[in-house]
Design a binder for these strands. Sequence first.
DNA 1: TGCGACTTTGACATCGCTGTCAATCCTGCT
DNA 2: AGCAGGATTGACAGCGATGTCAAAGTCGCA
Lengths: 350, 350
Amino acid sequence: MEGNGRGQRATIDDVAARAGVSIKTVSRVVNNEPNVRDATRDKVRAAIADLNYYPNASARRLAGNRSFLFALVYDDPSAYPDASANYVTNLHGGALKAAREAGYDLLIHPCDYQSSGLLEELDQLIDHSRIDGLILAPPLAEVKPVVRMLRKLGKPFVRVSPGKVQGYDAVHTNDREICVAMMRYLVSLGHERIAFIRGHEDHKAIGDRERGYEDGLREAGLPLRSSLVLQGNNSFDSGVACGARLLQRKRRPTAIFAANDDMAAGVLHQALEMEIPVPDELSVAGFDDVSLAQHVFPTLTTIHQPVKQMAERATKLLFEAIVGKPRKERTLVESTLVIRESTGPAPSER
Amino acid sequence: MEGNGRGQRATIDDVAARAGVSIKTVSRVVNNEPNVRDATRDKVRAAIADLNYYPNASARRLAGNRSFLFALVYDDPSAYPDASANYVTNLHGGALKAAREAGYDLLIHPCDYQSSGLLEELDQLIDHSRIDGLILAPPLAEVKPVVRMLRKLGKPFVRVSPGKVQGYDAVHTNDREICVAMMRYLVSLGHERIAFIRGHEDHKAIGDRERGYEDGLREAGLPLRSSLVLQGNNSFDSGVACGARLLQRKRRPTAIFAANDDMAAGVLHQALEMEIPVPDELSVAGFDDVSLAQHVFPTLTTIHQPVKQMAERATKLLFEAIVGKPRKERTLVESTLVIRESTGPAPSER
DNA sequence: TGCGACTTTGACATCGCTGTCAATCCTGCT
DNA sequence: AGCAGGATTGACAGCGATGTCAAAGTCGCA
């Protein structure tokens, strides 16, 4: 397996010796550089295979002045654990996959996007760990000062966000359109008083969800009543609170669409508490398709966000940006509707 | 801020020049090596501060033949997303904190502990990323071949597990004792027919929970009825299934203690489905205190596992092992009882 | 056959640190 | 004052790659 006489890992020198070429040529082959004769390339490849050679990352980093390290920066999920935790798992999965394929290692960096020391913290991360590029997950992708700093540092990054930033890639999903689709579905069930629970304003994508709600009403020719739109903060508890306010009205909505699953789960909880049968008297829909959605009672109709694919795509784009491929600025990965048990026909008017 | 004339980061040479010493001395100071006169040390420290010097990680890695990289290896939570995701967040948080404090970067490596290619996968991880040491989270800490391989490679590692492995650190919690405490609490509420839902057998810590259940019965002088112990697999769904089996009996248990929160949540779900009021007719207790526990209805009485602290401790021990401090083999981090709404006095006999 | 223009290839310096080992400095003692 | 022996310090050789640049090889065409 190890072919040099020293019982150590094979180095580039070993490969060069075995292939009868210089180390520079081996380096060229390893890095897929042009101007190597096919025959030479084959010889080197064979030697690499024979010796089970794998380049020493530290040496490459030092000589090439890059780290082969990406950082995935996201909001610390211990703040709002549940849905986020699952979201983060997908983020990790996608980013790890793409990073590995690109030959990069991935550093994770959960942080508080509202922290005053955020800029310094990221600067230090980049500086100390010599990160080659960053993937900014929402809501960090919306934090202007961060974007500004990275641009000033000339450090490559990719944002997972619907917003555009000149000269940098961004991956987003069709939040608005898919919300229109959800509304279309609810309307088709006969719902007319459909409430909406807004998410936290710092998440731009979540703002798009509200616009989808409005578009959906408009499309169905239903009035937009401001009394039916409440502000939540993405947490389960805020779902409970908003649910309570909506459901204790004399003329309560027949359907509640929450901007994320946690809040929708909060609404379900509140409905159970108030003994309002779901979906018979009330339909509830969420957004995200976190695993919680399948575990609440009744299971939650929601929108599946392709978080993993988005993270994977973003990481791949980061790599491409680093090797010089042209940027796209906006890349779409589509969400889909997932219909479960929490939605049903509107109750007939009494 | 940057003190050399080149507008680049300061290097060890810059610091040496400024302090009027050799680079070797700077290296000594940076690495806290002995045999440097205090005055010299101070001069060097001052120069480091002036130049805002931070050693180049790649160079250190290359020269020192170590990577300053730890890998945190755990079972891929996308398999059983909910509770695990939260568990994993804590794992990350603790390990990141300790790694950062030790000057290490942390690579995360979610994987399938049952995969046939696991050994090769880890070998490759160690080989390619030149990991200095690994933190094995359960259930990976129990996989014998992995432990064997790491020992053979001479690669330092720490296990998060109640089991011992000669010569290596392990961090565990008092699963058994705290389960006895839970039983004591249930018994104090008047429960006598207390069922237990076992977890997946691959998690050793979960086996200890069952022993705590048995000890608790014994301590209270209650009989151990095998009909009251069912096998789950840690998933919500298995909780639903076991709950169904237990609750449709003519003489059903008045309390159900599940070896993790997901299964307990499944039991709650099933109780709701069968319209059995909790905690009036049935008390339910879980284990883990995942955030789900606060979001189910009613909120779940459970046992808080200090996962974050365990991970932090484990990582710290790994670092200490690397720098040569003596091993402990077993380090305890205590769990605590969390009483919420899902438990109450046993219903009076009819 | 000879020549310019590419293509291939390799020698060697370099990246910024740590390890080795010898040189120099200090001590306390005689 | 002289000396052994430990405490300090530094010179220098790597670590294993990549970057630079010049040498050697090829090819087409006059």
